[in-house]
Design a protein around this nucleic acid. Structure first.
Lengths: 358, 358
DNA sequence: ATGAAAGCGCTAACAC
DNA sequence: GTGTTAGCGCTTTCAT
């Protein structure tokens, strides 16, 4: 037996304890309209089977009472569900929350894309070391698919999830031997564009800031290395700074690096926040940006244009990203095979690494 | 009749079309374990009634098959639901999406608070002119309560929602004749602290940037006006700039204002983003910050420390905000009366309006 | 055109 | 200790 409801009587009965609002159900509407629940159900779903006048009356009654259908029950009956889980990994070790504006923008973009298509979005976080836990939303029937923001260090877990036929799309880079569907910016291109621009400015000692254990960063470093090779320059491992995306940890790493090495004249950073932190560390050491050191960020977050100096950065297509992620997931749900997708990026020129040496 | 399921046969039957993963149910586990569904249900819920050995066996089977309970069905049966809707209004007219880092941080903070307490978060957006639509999540049974980020211009709609006994908490300011539960920073104090600090620096012509149609801004302006009065200064309506939070619209307004008026030496802004835009407009007009004009922001977003100059700003308690909002909502769900809550704020001193005139 | 009744996946009171 | 059974709120077939 279900836990005895407080009162199954119609709301019109003497329910003096007005403390909690009992949720209206179809049976209430039916009683008030003097018809059966079936008729209410049909009327509310706009069935042609029900008399136009009755349909009108029921619809108006429902609206005036602010009634709306219990979607849980409806989904159960219809075996349908329009909820998508969006999962943002966090770093459990450093207890850092998602705060990078880029991730948050992506979430907003996905929310829009889902809303436009009539889907609901369940937002949650998961330990970046246990991306596989994101599958719980599907397994529990709460969501029909999962969008994961970032691959982090667990390509393997993602492949396992895909092997289980979990409807899954991941924001991130396209890797060899990838079973899951990823959507992301062209990271190699991004790394190349940034580095080439710095070379063109005449910079020759170019540092790279980002943790190459992360697939996206790894790809960007490939682009960076490639551009250096094109220019006949060697990669100097000493100029690679494995700073994570979390500002708390990155700040220290960057301060130490900038204090130790003064033999570079440009930096490619893997996020705009890292670029900001780098600029601050450089200035603390008495170096100017872009004068002494030119700095390029990554993401083109909304605020990038309003920093000082405004950041030259690799623009990621955030608005399109939400749409692409959602469409890729919906394709899978339709039974289609969704191929990984790499979206174009471009360099947005601003002051931190200007068009030409000023 | 339900729409005929593809195949009700157990997964072990010859279901060659491996295209879609049929979701496992209790009956499948029951069959494989050779017990009834009730026993599986009890085992999975850790009931003492079931034989320890059986419980173990069932649990292991379920785990190995990656089975997990269909929460929709469970909720329906248990008349319980642990989903909270978090609704972020957007400006439909300017088609601006949530991009203010502050709102996004609040969302993250709420996500954490809900996760910690075992609740799920449904994230959606709503036209800022129709905040009442947020009630749909409750009415449809998808969520048991609603957290709304910001009051915008519709105090009235919020009061109506509360009058309907909708479990609701709103991030925002405490207003007279308020029926709903709000949680927010102390806006009057924020406005006062910022203005007092500028006065203490010797500034006398202090502008105010923010749209006072929004309750929070209105309260901050009260604090601003009060501080001016304390100092024996009159409020100059010409120094009030009704810039909205959307950067796209605000930029133009601020550029125009800074071009027109050059008779102020300080600005109190209602967000850090507005502060950044103001600084940019000032510099475009050849004025220095904080030399010619000191600027104070609001929110203390994560990036505020990394701007140039680093922003002096009113710190809002984001991490605590999520907890307070969630606790207030849960209190209502327990049938308790949740009072509006105003949280302390403080001034974070940085370079854009330094401790003392440098 | 409308109503009665079955059943979506699950839980819990009630048998045994 | 375990199985049987009713029913959460809804949709739809079937009967009228």
């Amino acid at each position: 037996m279900p836990p005895m409801p407080k009162s199954k009587a119609s709301p019109s009965s003497t329910d003096t304890s007005t403390s909690e609002q009992r949720r209206l159900q179809m049976v209430d509407i039916a009683r008030l309209a003097g018809v059966s629940v079936s008729t209410v159900s049909r009327a509310l779903n706009g069935s042609e089977l029900v008399n136009a006048e009755t349909r009108q009356r029921v619809a108006e009654l429902a609206r005036s009472l602010n009634y709306s259908i219990n979607l849980g029950a409806r989904n159960l009956r219809l075996q349908e569900n329009r909820t998508i889980a969006v999962v943002v990994p966090y770093d459990a070790k450093s207890r850092q929350h998602i705060s990078d504006p880029f991730f948050l923008s992506i979430v907003g973009s996905i929310a829009d894309a889902l809303t436009d298509r009539g889907y609901d979005m369940l937002l949650s976080r998961v330990d970046a070391e246990r991306l596989d836990l994101a599958a719980g939303w599907f397994d529990s029937g709460k969501a029909i698919g999962v969008v994961l923001i970032g691959q982090w260090r667990h390509h393997d877990q993602l492949n396992e999830m895909a092997a289980r036929k979990l409807p899954l799309v991941v924001w991130g880079g396209e890797l060899p031997q990838q079973l899951y569907c990823s959507v992301g910016g062209d990271n190699v291109l991004g790394g190349t564009l940034a580095t080439r621009h710095l070379l063109q400015l005449g910079r020759r000692r170019i540092a790279f800031v980002g943790d190459a254990h992360l697939p996206e960063v790894w790809l960007r470093r490939q682009g960076y290395a490639q551009a250096l090779r094109e220019a006949g320059l060697a990669v100097d491992a000493g100029l690679e700074v494995a700073a994570p995306f979390e500002p708390g940890v990155a700040t220290g790493v960057l301060q130490q690096f900038c204090a130790m090495r003064r033999d570079f004249d440009a930096v490619v950073c893997c996020s705009d926040v890292l670029a900001l932190l780098t600029i601050q560390a450089l200035r603390a050491g008495g170096r100017s940006v872009p004068g002494d050191v030119a700095v390029i960020g990554y993401d083109d977050m909304p605020l990038a244009a309003y920093c000082e100096p405004p950041l030259t950065t690799v623009h990621q297509p955030v608005a399109e990203a939400g749409i692409e992620l959602v469409e890729a997931l919906l394709a899978q749900l339709r039974g289609q095979r969704a191929e990984p997708r790499t979206m174009p990026v471009y360099l947005k020129l601003r002051e931190s690494a200007p068009q030409t040496e000023g």
